[in-house]
């Protein structure tokens, strides 16, 4: 897809998003007009700002048709093959990280994420990979759970229970 096509599609998408937001505010029954003696209703801010977004998107569409923006004249690839690989894999790895955090918990997910990124994407040595795979969860545990006292997600109960011994150990010995 060229940058030119991407700009057109993005302008259409932003226009549809803006119209969708306006409809959402309107159909939720929020007052989008002036209330006598009180000023704007609850829906005025989001409704009219979304209308502004729609107008701005329309302006971009018109400028695209007129070839005003540099992007509307560019025939370069929007996302090149190389970029698609590195950015696509990174975004997919992040998506995988978020999914796995809810299933197997933060720490196991972090280990898998580091393994994937450092060893398979970065091509680093096993020594470096293992350092990151073990070091990152330890650092995160100390920073978030010990110092910031935040209970990070541990996943499904089976994984959570497996992790409880560590917390028990910490509370038994250090508090």
């Amino acid at each position: 897809m060229t940058v030119r096509t991407a700009e057109l599609l993005m302008a259409i998408a932003t226009l549809l998003l803006s119209l969708g937001l306006m409809m959402k505010v309107y159909f939720d029954g929020l007052t989008i007009g002036w209330v006598d003696g009180r000023g704007p209703g609850a829906g005025v801010w989001p409704f009219w700002l979304s209308a502004g977004m729609a107008l701005a998107s329309l302006a971009t569409l018109i400028r695209w048709f007129m070839g005003v923006t540099p992007e509307s004249r560019s025939t370069e690839d929007y996302i090149s093959r190389d970029t698609l690989f590195i950015v696509g894999v990174s975004a997919a790895a992040l998506l995988g990280l978020l999914i796995s955090i809810t299933i197997i918990g933060t720490y196991l997910s972090l280990m898998l994420f580091m393994l994937l990124y450092v060893r398979f994407l970065g091509g680093h040595s096993w020594g470096m990979t293992m350092g990151m795979v073990i070091g990152t969860p330890v650092f995160i545990y100390l920073l978030f759970e010990v110092a910031l006292t935040k209970y990070l997600p541990k996943g499904l109960p089976i994984f959570e229970e497996g992790f409880l011994w560590l917390d028990n150990f910490r509370y038994e010995w250090f508090y």
């Binding site: 992040l94 990124y117 450092v118 935040k150 990070l152 997600p153």
Partner: peptide
């Protein structure tokens, strides 16, 4: 490839730590 995963992890857990919501 070493810095990026660390930043990604800090982003994800930083947001979670602020709001306590996945």
């Amino acid at each position: 490839t070493l810095l990026t995963p660390i930043i990604f992890v800090l982003c994800v857990l930083g947001v979670f730590a602020t709001t306590d919501r996945m």
